[in-house]
């Protein structure tokens, strides 16, 4: 029972902070609301019994990436109130297209049969032991090949960060 109340609390918190992130006029408030949204989603992961994912989510998103955001906002001194520079037509277009996606998603989830997901094996998958087994047995190749992706990103960061001109 308590998990249900927790679920509603976390959902409302996540939605509220996501919306506040979008409509805050000060960038620093947006960043802080985004952090709050990340924590709320991390709470959802714990409710789903995915502890590892929750911890990684909080360390990476709420920790590392938000620190980066905050530093950028502070270093560039962006903490001023700003009016959105977008035109009215662009705003309406964005609302219409975003709303259409939302309607489609609501239509999907309305007919979705929730009883399908009650699989006792799946509730244990988020535990770190099971996750490690899956990662090193079934998904070994993607796990290894992602090293190419990271190498590319690192070489690229050095390439773009160096002072030398081309």
């Amino acid at each position: 029972m308590i998990t249900r109340y927790l679920f509603y609390f976390l959902s409302i918190l996540a939605l509220y902070s996501a919306i506040m992130m979008l409509i805050s006029r000060r960038q620093i408030h947006s960043v802080l609301y985004l952090t709050l949204a990340f924590f709320a989603i991390g709470g959802h992961y714990i409710l789903l019994n995915a502890q590892f994912l929750a911890v990684v989510h909080i360390i990476v998103y709420a920790g590392a990436i938000m620190v980066l955001f905050l530093f950028t906002v502070m270093l560039l001194n962006l903490n001023t109130e700003q009016k959105s520079p977008k035109k009215m037509s662009a705003k309406i277009g964005a609302i219409v297209s975003g709303g259409m996606l939302m309607i489609v998603l609501i239509a999907i989830l309305r007919t979705y049969d929730i009883s399908m997901t009650h699989d006792p094996d799946l509730t244990q998958i988020g535990l770190i032991k099971n996750l490690g087994k899956v990662l090193y047995e079934d998904y070994l190749l993607p796990f290894e090949i992602s090293s190419v992706l990271f190498l590319t990103a690192m070489v690229g960061a050095v390439l773009l960060g160096k002072k030398e001109q081309i």
């Binding site: 090949i145 992706l149 590319t152 990103a153 070489v155 690229g156 390439l159 773009l160 001109q165 081309i166």
Partner: peptide, 17 residues
């Protein structure tokens, strides 16, 4: 797709000036 895309984001900006 991500390996390709990240490589291309970097290459597209490789003429820094």
């Amino acid at each position: 797709i991500e390996t390709l895309s990240i490589a291309l984001y970097i290459l597209a900006g490789s003429h820094k000036e």
